[in-house]
């Protein structure tokens, strides 16, 4: 496994099997963090909904929404291709809006949230990753469009 140091040129892999790869270069790190957030949010919300949904229905529903968004973005990133790239871009925007809205809501009206959500206080409990992730995600997805070979006009 002692391969030579890979240069930046080889790191930006081009598409395989017709689909442009989104999981290459910095995309690997991105999909890893999204994967971790998906596992964390999904297991958290499954546990919350099964065990103590009634204590804070709003907070636990919002956690479930976050879990679905993370899982979907991870799936689109792994799948790759232009349509998946666009879907992921839309979801990242939705995720950012969600973090900002829920974050502001939890700061403005804490009494509505007896229990915290993934997106409480802009994701402070998750080291602010929820608010930073969609921004880096959108930057990467916009950039990876530029790296693709020029598309044939439809």
């Amino acid at each position: 496994m002692a391969e030579p140091v890979t240069t930046k040129k080889t790191a930006t892999a081009t598409g395989t099997a017709g689909r442009s790869k989104l999981v290459a270069g910095p995309g690997v790190l991105l999909v890893w963090v999204y994967g971790v957030m998906s596992v964390g949010a999904v297991s958290r919300s499954v546990y919350e909904i099964l065990v103590r949904f009634d204590t804070a229905p709003l907070a636990h529903s919002l956690s479930a929404v976050a879990a679905v968004v993370y899982a979907f973005i991870t799936y689109t990133l792994v799948r790759g291709g232009e349509r998946a790239r666009r879907a992921a871009l839309v979801c990242c925007a939705a995720e950012l809006a969600g973090v900002l809205i829920v974050g502001t809501w939890t700061v403005w009206d804490p009494s509505a949230f007896p229990d915290s959500t993934v997106w409480s206080e802009y994701g402070m409990g998750y080291l602010f990753i929820p608010v930073l992730l969609p921004v880096t995600g959108m930057l990467w997805l916009r950039r990876s469009r530029g790296q693709q070979p020029p598309a044939v006009a439809p």
């Binding site: 890979t6 930046k8 999981v23 690997v28 790190l29 890893w32």
Partner: peptide, 28 residues
């Protein structure tokens, strides 16, 4: 979760033989 974190990141770094593979393991 603690048991699976490093192996998962390690396999990802095998598919990405660049600095980004190392960064993935670091974040894992």
């Amino acid at each position: 979760g603690a048991f699976t974190a490093i192996p998962a990141a390690g396999f990802l770094s095998l598919t990405e033989r660049s600095r980004w593979g190392s960064a993935t393991v670091a974040s894992g």
